[in-house]
Design a protein around this nucleic acid. Structure first.
Length: 536
RNA sequence: GUGUCUGUAGCUUAAUGGAUAAAGCGCAGGUCUCCGGAACCUGAGAUUGCGGGUUCGAAUCCCGCCAGACACGCCA
């Protein structure tokens, strides 16, 4: 949409001044300024040595007579454009002829800095297999999943990956904790060990197949625990309709880790001291340990190896989704990757902030059932997958999120999920009401539109820019915002105008609008991966 | 202490360096002889933490201060 306007303005400037520009098109703050505005006159002011207002006047004059615009005016140096209803109508029917084609945009590849054949790696969740998923993991999982669906919608090739930390200290610690519950006398509970009922459950389950408490094979127990935990994690993710293309095991990196150390050594980026091997960072004031004095590798070392591995698998870009508490770790990793010759914009790390749960104004921290940390699975069971998915995306990832249980269960417009789904249910209601000769679809014609109708059309058409932005900014919350915007416009339209009237032309016009609303919702719900309810 | 980030209506949040800072909740007042009122409309409410600077223009960029979160481990 913006792109269309941009090219029109660009052409016009070329005609007047014979120069190439890249005019910015923005949505004006105030409605009376029109539908689109450009500040291009300010930018041309210096090179042309003319007042912004004069330039804006010239541009406005040349745009005025075009059929796209109802009104073009130069105000305070801005060029304000109001599109004609007929132009909006044309775009609306373009959309209706083929919604998906209308929304897709080849320009996304360039905007995102890739070519069409390039593949992206999207890594998220990657929770340690040392316990069940909790609420925070859910947020990362849903953000990742919707991001994936957005990419896919625009035909960007992307693989979803889950990195399993099955090699380090933590899984050993889990195994030792289980051992303790197998034989309390023989194995003391380890320092910083894992508590919680699931550890005891793992011990009991292991004993089913291994009745003897003697001669327990540590590695066997560890494998057992990891596979059980991953099974549990996958089941929970499944409840949110989330799956992965690849589960990547840290253990398979052993050779890569050693290779990384050699490569870093060649670049003179490591140093041995106090029996350990350190990475000499240029970007940080502190050196970081890669290999501990006991000979084992740190998480940092395998993480470098893991990302090198991804890079060598041919991905043009890698996106990682991390909890915001890891933000200090980013410069370290990027710095090491740069030493290995991987450009710093290859990897982008998106952070998401913590999630808290509230009920009756009080934060809920512990599960009533078990007295432990609330498991993601419990929250899904309580609130429903669709509600939770939607709620996770009501704010930008980088903003802390509070979820109010009472709100999510409320059946009114304060509940954003309800508000949007109710709008959809209303479109279905209209569909059910239609009688001969009307059918639910669209009727192409030249109509005159009233304020609420044209507003709804604008909202629907704005989806193109909004989804585009969602990818460029890697911000899936824009999809939820879009759904709320459209729902609002639709409710207002619905409240002001009857769809089924005595007048045939008016009825056909409004059926077309309701139909368009439903079509865009179908697409949005599909990207969000939530159900579109026919009745509520 | 050092680093990163954040500070916007009473609350929760928006705002590619652009015009009179925008929504939702809350508050006050309204709207169907209604295709789903489970909805809609109107209004009041802001010195964008404080002080400087950069420029045609700053919530946004730079500097200083104040407040908060997070990170600073041979954990992951």
């Amino acid at each position: 949409m913006k792109e269309v306007i941009k090219n029109i303005v660009k052409e016009s400037i070329k005609k007047i001044y014979n120069i190439d520009t890249n005019p910015q098109i923005q949505l004006p703050k105030e409605e009376s300024f029109g539908d689109f505005a450009s500040n291009v006159a300010f930018l041309l002011s210096k090179p042309l040595k003319q007042k912004p207002q004069d330039i804006a006047n010239n541009i406005a004059d040349s745009l005025k007579n075009m059929p796209y615009f109802e009104k073009v005016e130069a105000l305070n140096g801005f060029v304000n454009m109001k599109l004609s209803n007929s132009f909006y109508e044309k775009l609306l029917f373009d959309f209706l002829e083929n919604p998906i084609d209308y929304l897709k945009d080849e320009a996304i590849f360039e905007a995102f800095g890739i070519k069409k054949e390039d593949k992206i790696n999207l890594e998220y969740v990657s929770a340690n297999p040392t316990g069940p998923l909790h609420l925070g993991h859910g947020r990362g999982a849903v953000i990742g999943d919707v991001l994936y669906r957005l990419f896919r919608f625009f035909d960007i090739k992307v693989d979803r990956e889950y990195y399993i930390n099955d090699a380090g200290n933590q899984v050993n610690l889990l195994t030792k904790s289980i051992l303790h519950y197998i034989d309390k006398d023989k194995y003391p509970f380890p320092k910083d060990g894992y508590k919680g009922d699931y550890v005891k459950d793992l011990a009991e389950e292991f004993l089913k197949d291994h009745p003897s408490k003697e001669n327990i094979n540590f590695e066997e127990l560890k494998d057992f625990a990891i596979s059980k935990m991953m099974e549990d994690i996958k089941n929970t993710l499944k409840l949110l309709n989330i799956e992965f293309d690849t589960y990547f095991s840290e253990r398979t990196l052993k050779d890569d880790v050693e290779r990384v150390l050699k490569l870093l050594e060649e670049k003179n980026a490591i140093e041995e001291k106090e029996g350990a091997i350190w990475f000499k960072s240029k970007d940080e004031d502190k050196d970081r340990v890669l290999r501990k004095s006991d000979g084992s590798y740190t998480y940092f070392a395998s993480d470098i190896a893991y990302h090198l591995n991804k890079y060598e698998r041919g991905y043009k870009k890698a996106i990682d989704l991390w909890g915001a508490d890891h933000h200090g770790y980013i410069p370290r990793l990027k710095s090491a990757l740069e030493v290995l010759g991987i450009p710093s914009d290859w990897l982008s790390v998106e952070l998401f902030q913590i999630v808290r749960l509230f009920k009756d104004g009080q934060e809920v921290k512990m599960s009533k059932r078990t007295g432990e940390m609330i498991k993601l699975q419990e929250v899904i069971e309580d609130l429903g997958a669709d509600n939770l998915r939607f709620m996770f995306l009501t704010k930008k990832a980088d903003t802390p999120l509070d979820i109010d249980i009472n709100l999510v269960k409320a059946q009114n417009s304060e509940n954003p999920v309800f508000y949007v789904q109710y709008a959809y249910a209303r479109t279905m209601g209209i569909k059910r009401q239609l009688k001969e000769p009307f059918v639910f679809g669209f009727y192409k014609d030249n109509y005159t539109y009233e304020e609420e109708e044209i507003d709804l059309i604008k909202r629907i058409l704005s989806s193109k820019d909004m989804l585009f932005d969602g990818i460029v900014k890697k911000d899936p919350s824009l999809v939820v915002k879009l759904s709320l915007d459209i729902a609002k416009s639709f409710h207002k339209f619905y409240n002001t105008h009857k769809v089924i009237t005595q007048d045939e032309t008016t009825t056909k016009k409004r059926i077309s609008l309701v139909y368009a609303t439903q079509k865009i919702f179908d697409i949005i719900f599909d990207i969000l991966n939530i159900k579109a309810p026919e009745v509520m």
